[in-house]
Amino acid sequence: MQAIRSILFHAAFYSLTTLLAIFGLPILLRDRRGVQAYARFWTGTSIWLLDKVGGVKVEFRGLDRLPQGGCIIAAKHQSALETLALTTITHDFSYVLKRELMGIPIFGWYLSGAGQIAIDRAKRGQAMADLIKQVGEAAAQGRQIFIFPEGTRRQAGAPPDYKSGVAHLYAATGAICAPVALNTGLFWPRSGPLRSGTAVIEFLPPLAPGLDKKTFANRLQTEIEAATAALIAEAVADDPGLKTALAD
């Protein structure tokens, strides 16, 4: 039954995405806030479909810890789920993403119109300086900047692989950082069908500006990993079958 729900969800999700992308093209004539509002309609509808069709609910915890105004939100990344869901609870968001995504027809137009922050990895040394400038400007405008410290999705339970980029951004911009733990990879894995249940996305206590980079990096990884492990353990205790989604 769950396999069928998973197939139906993916069919509905990709159909919705295609239709909204095509019929929403006039939205690109609006400003960043207008494009983001349309994006939130897409992501909100997708999360609704995930619940009603796919059998996966999303629970947010610690929303009262989300800083108001400009900040860096450093989130664990296990699934497409958090990429969608996090946009629904922020007012003016930007994801740090690779510039190649901006070149995808239609999809890239929406990313650009919504004011997302692209990093050109081909520039090597200059890439971080450009990123610091963009993130600093966005934070000064009161925007909430999402970054995945490990750079890419990691299977639930996989050993951590944090990069240094988020620590450089934190130190250079002086922005407050909100760590985010989650267990989404148990329910919407990178490959394979959805698994029913409640995926949890938890905001942890923010890290105030002023820490040195090494202390910040250690605290960020330690706190996110501990909270993520607890969320995974909680989910597996409720449904032992979720163990099959964990990395070996």
Rank of each mutant, 00 (worst) to 15 (best):
residue 1 M to K: 12
residue 6 S to N: 10
residue 6 S to E: 09
residue 13 F to T: 08
residue 31 D to Q: 09
residue 34 G to C: 05
residue 38 Y to R: 02
residue 40 R to L: 06
residue 44 G to L: 11
residue 47 I to G: 08
residue 47 I to R: 09
residue 48 W to T: 11
residue 49 L to F: 15
residue 51 D to F: 08
residue 57 K to I: 00
residue 61 R to H: 06
residue 61 R to P: 00
residue 63 L to A: 05
residue 64 D to P: 02
residue 66 L to P: 03
residue 71 C to W: 05
residue 73 I to V: 15
residue 79 S to P: 10
residue 83 T to P: 05
residue 85 A to T: 05
residue 90 T to N: 10
residue 98 K to W: 04
residue 100 E to L: 09
residue 102 M to D: 06
residue 102 M to Q: 08
residue 105 P to K: 12
residue 110 Y to I: 06
residue 113 G to N: 03
residue 113 G to K: 01
residue 114 A to P: 06
residue 116 Q to V: 04
residue 121 R to W: 09
residue 126 Q to P: 04
residue 127 A to S: 14
residue 128 M to F: 00
residue 136 G to Y: 00
residue 139 A to R: 14
residue 141 Q to E: 15
residue 151 G to R: 13
residue 157 G to M: 06
residue 167 A to H: 11
residue 171 A to C: 01
residue 180 V to C: 10
residue 184 T to P: 07
residue 201 I to Y: 11
residue 203 F to A: 11
residue 213 K to R: 15
residue 214 K to V: 12
residue 221 Q to W: 11
residue 224 I to F: 01
residue 225 E to T: 13
residue 227 A to N: 06
residue 228 T to K: 06
residue 229 A to L: 10
residue 229 A to I: 07
residue 231 L to H: 06
residue 235 A to V: 07
residue 235 A to K: 08
residue 239 D to K: 14
residue 242 L to G: 15
residue 245 A to G: 12
residue 247 A to D: 13
residue 248 D to L: 10
residue 248 D to Q: 12
